[in-house]
């Protein structure tokens, strides 16, 4: 069953421009989906619409069998956790502990249960050592880990990352990507990540590429990346292995389409030694 079903969704910030233009897609429970597209393609808007932070103009959004409307809003919010781009502007508590507690307080979790929940979820993002730290003493990557623990603590079914790594340095990016991958591996959570990171896209189950508020392409990373020309047309990056494959083809060397370097080199090796 699809946990997210979007049908004919439209949205605009003002009347002059349509930001989301009649899009439909479905996301299966337990999958890892990435949404790509250049800045201004509407991808963050989709995330905010799904989390009920923006109000759609027309169309429908079904989350876990519930129609997203004012009536169901708080039920749906319980099912969706979202981690935003800016690590500073989503840290609400004055310490890590207080920040994770914030969502629990909102969901009326009884106070005696909170410490246990906080500790379990801090452990999932390896922040147990920092529970009493203030945000000013944490790195960007650590702050994002706290944000993840904060939403995990609310036991959502869907986790949305809205460019959660784009303001981090390389080690922070790796840190967060590793945490996301581990969460996906050890739980049945559905993950939706809005990203520019080509390695993260290659790692996902399903890719949706947006362009001017419409879905330009979607499929497995292999399917989407194979359309090198179409990707270029919507100004998206192509994995290095596919660029090489094209360049090699021009030089009369035919190899399969690989989305990782390792795959490409493996095939090259076989033709190198076998022939």
């Amino acid at each position: 069953m699809s946990i997210i079903e979007v049908k004919d969704l439209t949205f605009s910030y003002d009347d002059t421009k349509t930001t989301i233009d009649h899009i439909s897609f479905a996301i299966e429970e337990g999958t890892y989906t990435t949404i790509v597209g250049h800045n201004g393609s509407g991808k963050s808007t989709v995330a905010k619409l799904l989390a009920g932070l923006l109000e759609k103009k027309s169309g429908s959004i079904m989350i876990d069998g519930l129609e997203l409307n004012l009536e169901n809003l708080s039920k749906i919010r319980n099912r969706i956790g979202i981690v935003f781009q800016n690590p500073d502007n989503q840290f609400i508590g004055s310490t890590v502990r207080d920040d994770i507690a914030f969502g629990l307080e909102n969901h009326c979790v009884p106070q005696p249960e909170m410490d246990g929940i906080i500790e379990v979820n801090a452990e999932r993002v390896h922040m147990t050592k920092y529970l009493d730290h203030e945000p000013s003493r944490l790195s960007g990557g650590q702050k994002q880990r706290v944000a993840i623990a904060g939403v995990l603590a609310m036991k959502p079914k869907i986790l949305i990352f809205d460019e959660a790594t784009s303001m981090l340095d390389p080690s922070g990016k790796d840190e967060i990507k590793r945490v996301i991958r581990n969460i996906h591996k050890e739980s049945s959570l559905t993950i939706l990540s809005i990203t520019h990171d080509i390695d993260e896209v290659a790692d996902s189950d399903h890719v949706i590429a947006l362009e001017k508020g419409r879905i330009a392409m979607q499929g497995t990373p292999h399917e989407v990346f194979s359309e090198v020309e179409a990707l270029r047309k919507i100004k998206l990056d192509v994995p290095f292995s596919l660029k090489m494959q094209q360049k090699l083809a021009k030089r009369g060397v035919q190899v399969g389409k690989h989305i990782t370097m390792e795959g490409l080199v493996r095939e090259l090796c076989q033709s190198h030694s076998n022939m």
Binding site: L53, S74, R77, I82, F84, F102, E105, M114, M154
Partner: peptide, 15 residues
């Protein structure tokens, strides 16, 4: 805050 379920005026517990 909204995404994490905060609604001013609504019942919440305290840590």
């Amino acid at each position: 805050m909204e995404a994490r379920g905060y609604a001013p005026g609504e019942q919440r517990t305290r840590y």
